[in-house]
Amino acid sequence: MAYSEKVLEHYENPRNVGSFDKEEHGVGTGMVGAPACGDVMKLQIKVGKDGVIEDARFKTYGCGSAIASSSLVTEWVKGKTLDEAMAIKNTQIAEELALPPVKIHCSILAEDAIKAAIADYKSKSGVKGQEEETAEATVCAPRPTTA
């Protein structure tokens, strides 16, 4: 299956790969996975005193679309408030990366990951807000050959 230019670009030059110390103040960690395709995604945010996301990191093991989706999301959330980041929809990710229908689940995984990271940050820092549901993993089509 052919990947779009944008997916390939993020796949070859992923932004913000790495980790923050999950115990560090202001860090929220989201871990999500898709049992059916074996993808696992860790997305972390670092929130400043003003409630704005200063920085983000990710580590994803999965197909090119999963890597590109998480890479893109780490770029998007920087400079956003938590509420703005919560509003990111998988459809926006899928559209930006021109994901084909069989790869939509990768963008859902990325949306779940950012929501889980925000929920983790809120529960650690005691921010009052509506109860966040734990992010849900999704089923996924068989792995494409990415090589």
């Binding site: 996975g33 696992v40 580590k59 093991y61 849900e136 993993a137």
Partner: peptide, 16 residues
């Protein structure tokens, strides 16, 4: 097994 199934965070951490 389907779309609403979630793996535990501990399991995912180990797997990562």
């Amino acid at each position: 097994l389907g779309a609403s199934d979630v793996l535990s965070v501990e399991f995912l951490r180990e797997q990562l």
